[in-house]
Design a protein around this nucleic acid. Sequence first.
DNA 1: AACATCAACTACAACGTTACAGTTGGCACG
DNA 2: CGTGCCAACTGTAACGTTGTAGTTGATGTT
Lengths: 337, 337
Amino acid sequence: MRRASNGPTLKGLAAIMGISPSAVSMALNGRPGVSDELRERVRAVAAEHGYLPNFAARALRVERSNMLGLISRNLSNPGYLRLIDGFSGAAEEHGYQILIGTSDLDSSREASMIRAMTNRQLDGLAIAPIEGEAALATWRAESDRPVVLVNSARSTKSSSVMSIRGDASQAVRLAVDHLVGLGHRRIGLVTNPGLSSASERVSLFRRMMRAAGLRSRVISGGSAGETVKLTVRALSRDDRPTAVITDSDLLAHHVYDAAAEAGLRIPHDLSVVGHDDLPTSHLLGPALTTIAVDRFEIGRQAATMLIAALNGDEIERPHRELPVELKVRQSTAQPAE
Amino acid sequence: MRRASNGPTLKGLAAIMGISPSAVSMALNGRPGVSDELRERVRAVAAEHGYLPNFAARALRVERSNMLGLISRNLSNPGYLRLIDGFSGAAEEHGYQILIGTSDLDSSREASMIRAMTNRQLDGLAIAPIEGEAALATWRAESDRPVVLVNSARSTKSSSVMSIRGDASQAVRLAVDHLVGLGHRRIGLVTNPGLSSASERVSLFRRMMRAAGLRSRVISGGSAGETVKLTVRALSRDDRPTAVITDSDLLAHHVYDAAAEAGLRIPHDLSVVGHDDLPTSHLLGPALTTIAVDRFEIGRQAATMLIAALNGDEIERPHRELPVELKVRQSTAQPAE
DNA sequence: AACATCAACTACAACGTTACAGTTGGCACG
DNA sequence: CGTGCCAACTGTAACGTTGTAGTTGATGTT
């Protein structure tokens, strides 16, 4: 077989120096039991020979792989890139590598991904779960290692599970307040089907609208494509909404298409508020008003929470909600009528 | 220590069944040496007890981790998502997990990423290298496993290294032909600095322009921000280009900003051709004419090439150039003058 | 001077898996 | 009926690392 690493082993270093492998191990890991003088010599020799520890061997022995897993719902939403970026950056800083999986919005795939990750000895896992409880259960059945739920609707408040996401209720409130403030009365929510966060969003929306004394309309199909079709239909009706709030910028893009199809101009005939602030959203014609949530930061904190838990540190706030921000641009205006 | 997997081990299964661990191993791996009858029984018992192999142990023994690495230049370009998506999809299909790293456009980080991946016993690596030769050398110094260079300027034609990318010369030709066909004479190339592919692009552009009997202008700064500034300046000059070709859609977005700053309307005063066809590019105002390259397919083939090489199969075309496509939209038109 | 104490090491086993050299028993063949 | 052969197993060692239980020799204490 081809060897992955033809470098020296720890045992080899020991032979070269005429000492025991244990001594080398202790020296390299900075553990007590060797003299400072020897520690220095070992480090020098290791560096000279370009020694790199074999992670498989270490993982087998200490049951720690120095790898963190990240399972996301899908990889076609550019927002996830920022999340991965933040997660991997923080992980690498602490010497962890990351393993990425995508559930492709299929909950059985999600479960099998999680199991595949478990027996790779992952030290911790961040999941943007399709079904919060199910994903969690799969992981915990196989492992007692830390998990952090990302962008998932609040569910378990248990201390063994952490979570982080943008502040969902603030997001809905900002969007509704903005549109109501502009004078809109008929406001719709266009939501992606199938996500655990969707139903929470819907109920938050309903509550905010009720508080404003308005009737709420929710547009949500069985699939993304169907949702778009329903949107076109809703926009063609007489009492069509004069403004819609969407679950994501991507969905907002589809609403742009739907509006064009229905012959409506944005923002003159229809105001649109997105959610995510993709890097391209301000370049849309017209630039999209949207809720910005710092996904990079979410990813970063997800990783640092896991690492802190692995180090046995106390986690200050195990359930975090990051503030979100409304970016007002050109896709919202006062209603025409 | 906490155990990652509390499930049974192979040895445990052997004890339960009263046979030797070797027999269990052979049965589970479908190797000859056990009767069909026993093989079936072992499989049944394994399934019943939810046995999952310990990858660290296997990796240690067989020097194969069943993991593929993917190192990309940075994670802020949405195009990479499609690449990762294709790569991870194909990898998972064959039972491989993927390890992701980003070099953040820093070549020393790139080298250390590669070394970190080497001693994790990675079976194969796909690199979108900053410096083609350097990245390769780092990997090959530590390992003799397959590599595939992604989106990298043609360099080594050696058979031990594979490569895949969009057809760069076709891309430039399509863009130039399109603009020349519209009647443009003063065409600029706006390019991202620092990438090995950039210089190749520049020379291809020069060649195409010479073939068309036109002078070529290249706009390229030391950094992305600087490039934008240079673009603004170039667009303010009297003999400003009437059309520009950019290295990426993201850069094209910046050109949109630069054009706005210079008081030019697209496509009336300036035609723009991008490169990538990001999902949002057709929603820009105006919709961006761009070169589409199927990054998903690039990622998918990168993974399958690696896996084929690991299986010892013959690779049909170890240096692949995927066809690219010009998507004509609203950002290009005949020059005004 | 006898003994405890301790730092600085060594020896050994183990983690879970797989490769390979043995071992067993049954069957065909001269 | 002994021999050879083969299929179907078992036993053992090894992959590279680390933790723990020794072992050594020097130092300090009474």
